[in-house]
Simulated scan of single mutants.
Amino acid sequence: MHDPQSLYEVFLRVARDGSFTAAARGLGYTQSAVSRQIQTLEEQWGTALFDRLPRGVRLTEAGRVLLPHAQGMRDRLRAARAELDVLRSLDGGTLRVGAFATADVSLVPCAVASFAARHPGVTVVHTEGPTAKHVELLAEGALDVAVLSAPGAVPPTGPDLHDLWDEPMYVALPRGHRFAGRARLRLAELADEPWIEGDVRPDRTLLAPALADGFRPRVVFRVNDWTAKLGFVAAGLGITVLPALAAGAARADIALVPVDPADLPHRRVYAATARGTTPSAAATAFLADLRGAVASMDR
């Protein structure tokens, strides 16, 4: 199959030079190759574009009509090729990224910083929100990559998932708490503690997986923002679950103790792309940056 841009380049060169031989010499082709490409173009348009004369060739009436359009198509194809080359080389374009709140504490910023350092010509657009929102945005084609979480054993449905991390859970305690120096905690030891969570119903919080074993936390304050939660903990008003992704934002006046995974399983974290689509070059590169950011956090 002939490249459309090449066909029109040859047509315009023959029209300028008035000769297949001269055009072939100028383009670095053989004369027969130029002749074949002109023949292909004439077959596509269903008409002769050149009169073959004893000495050279001359545009027919149809060729003269096609000439300005060929120039325009040649220029547009050149521009399209240049833009596609920019996307492939990651010298331009846009990368649209979405992530849930705690992924934005360190994982996503580290990955974006790494990506931006290597590909400064690509514009990164960030969207924050819960996993369900990003699943919808991926399906709508409004995101290129999303970082999603699955607190239980069931992964999000809809997008193509790329495993990133099994994220441990911590309990955030006031620095002076009696358990602050422990290497690990069981939730049964915290049954009488006041809890600070994003919902008064534990089944809507990160503690939900523990409820099946009979654990019933006493939620005394409903606080959604992670920074505010840690402020309440530091003031001695209660304790809270803190995902490992948010550990980098922990204050100096609180203590973080891992929760036994037998009580609170690790949370699965995924990168996701829209199902059935071909990720862009930028999306593919960013997936590698996410994996690199996780690897650095795991060390």
Results as ranks from 00 to 15, higher is better:
D104C: 10
V105F: 08
V97Y: 07
M73E: 10
M73R: 10
A103R: 00
A99C: 09
G98K: 00
A80S: 09
D104S: 06
R74W: 04
T102K: 03
L87M: 06
L87W: 08
L77F: 04
M73L: 13
V108K: 00
A101S: 14
A82C: 15
L84N: 10
V108T: 02
M73D: 11
L87Y: 12
T102I: 04
R81A: 12
L95R: 01
A79M: 11
G98V: 01
L77H: 02
R96H: 04
L95S: 02
G93W: 05
L90S: 07
P109S: 12
D91I: 14
V86F: 09
L77P: 01
G93C: 03
C110I: 04
R88G: 06
R78Y: 09
R81Y: 05
M73K: 07
L107H: 00
D85G: 11
G98S: 05
S89A: 11
A79P: 08
R78K: 14
L84W: 15
S89E: 13
F100K: 00
R96N: 04
V108A: 03
R81N: 15
V97G: 00
V97K: 01
R76E: 10
L84F: 10
G92C: 08
L90C: 09
L84Y: 13
A103L: 06
S89M: 14
T94R: 09
S89D: 11
V108I: 06
S106L: 08
G93L: 08
L84T: 04
L95A: 02
E83I: 02
A101V: 06
R96S: 06
G98Y: 01
V105T: 05
R81D: 14
L77Q: 04
A82Q: 15
D91M: 09
A103F: 03
L84A: 09
R76Q: 15
C110T: 08
L107I: 09
A79C: 15
S89H: 12
T102P: 02
E83N: 14
L90D: 03
A79N: 15
V108S: 01
L90I: 13
L77R: 02
R81E: 11
A101L: 07
S106W: 04
V108Q: 01
T102W: 03
A101D: 07
D85R: 05
L84R: 14
L77A: 03
L84H: 14
R88P: 01
D75A: 14
G92Q: 04
V108N: 00
M73I: 07
P109L: 12
A79W: 05
A79V: 12
T94P: 03
R78L: 13
C110Q: 10
M73G: 01
A101K: 02
M73S: 06
D91A: 15
A80D: 09
L107Y: 01
R76K: 14
R88Y: 02
R78I: 14
A101C: 08
D85N: 08
S89Y: 01
D75L: 13
L90Y: 09
C110F: 08
T102S: 13
D75P: 00
A80M: 08
R74F: 05
L77Y: 00
A82N: 14
V105Y: 03
A80V: 09
A103H: 01
C110Y: 06
F100A: 03
L77C: 05
T94Q: 12
G92S: 15
G98F: 01
E83C: 04
T102R: 02
G93N: 10
L95E: 00
